[in-house]
Design a protein around this nucleic acid. Structure first.
Lengths: 184, 184
DNA sequence: TAGTCCATGTAAGATGTTACATGATTCA
DNA sequence: TGAATCATGTAACATCTTACATGGACTA
């Protein structure tokens, strides 16, 4: 068994297969027809990624798979453990800057696959990193705005606004979870 | 001369070198110390990318480059033409979904390198694609919200909010340009 | 029976990640 | 002189992009 380091795409596939056993074709169609369109639905991406997940022992093809010609995959217990490990890592500043999409993917599957409380911990951790990072951007803008071209300044402001929107979102999300807790 | 298809990183380098001749080291430091930190500052990324730009004839190393050991690059006329072509392409829905960062990069250099009016054309084009795309996400949310897990729904809402923030930003940016035009 | 969709794959090539390597320069 | 920083590079590896290839099933 070869051990590949799972990519963001790999975790997306793993999460979807965990939701319900799926074939490569199902996954391609899912990507092309939902907001997960940000992932490529090309066969040259999906099938090799599935083979890697299988080689790493994170998924296996189910026997007696549906229609002839289809190969259905299901998640193994190793796959579930690996997914949870990835999903519940603390949020780092680097994730914010380089991999915001992966962060949201981790959160998207939180209710289904992580233990209770993981969603709130994630949100708090995300919030903390955002609150620490946004002032850096503001500082840079303040020091440099006068000798930045207008479009450069606007682009930076757009980035700041995007992070602020995420921060606002985390507050709403935390409230949603708190409320649900109170009701239960 | 080999012709490589220039990547987003390549255009980032090209734009920065156009602003002022720079060495690989300068570029690495720029990435690591400004909001362009989203690009890798690793030498294993920067130096090969510079070689590719040079091989494609988009940059050349300047003679008598500064301190001993440094190689300063400057943009060629082919490089300028290629940058402008990339920068002034119309915005496609695919750019929105897969390459939002590249879009903002294109805009960031607009005032410096594109002809007058290009910034406004870009903003209008961006606006149009955003206005066309956001309703798709809303529709998906509306049809699926009842059988989505809470965290999945929240993640989708975060995506919608991010796009809406960009749309709001374009309106502010258009106003900025209009105002400057009126004043001039 | 012809066209479309289902379904899986391979191959070439470019790019990015990470780690390693080397030597010059500056400054305490 | 030793450490940090300047400065450029290579090499192994994994991944993604794009294009091509193949055959079965369905349906007008």
């Amino acid at each position: 068994m070869v051990n590949h380091k799972t990519s963001t795409l790999g975790f997306a596939l793993l999460g979807l297969i965990w939701q319900a056993p799926r074939s490569g074709y199902d996954l391609r169609k899912f990507f092309s027809s939902t907001p997960m369109i940000s992932f490529s639905d090309s066969p040259g991406v999906i099938y090799p990624a599935l083979r890697r997940l299988e080689q790493s022992g994170l998924i296996q093809s189910a026997e007696g798979s549906g229609r002839r010609g289809r190969k259905m995959f299901e998640v193994t217990s190793r796959g579930r453990a690996e997914f949870r490990r990835w999903q519940t890592q603390p949020v780092m500043q680097q994730d914010l800057v380089r991999n915001l999409d992966a962060l949201m993917l981790r959160f998207a599957f939180m209710d289904q696959f992580a233990e209770k409380g993981a969603a709130l911990r994630f949100l708090k951790s995300f919030q903390k990193e955002l609150a620490a990072y946004i002032p850096n951007l503001r500082k840079y803008l303040k020091s440099n705005r006068d000798h930045m071209p207008r479009s450069g300044r606007l682009a930076l402001e757009s980035g700041i606004q995007a992070y602020e929107t995420h921060l606002r979102w985390t507050r709403g999300a935390v409230a949603t979870y708190r409320q649900a807790k109170g009701e239960s």
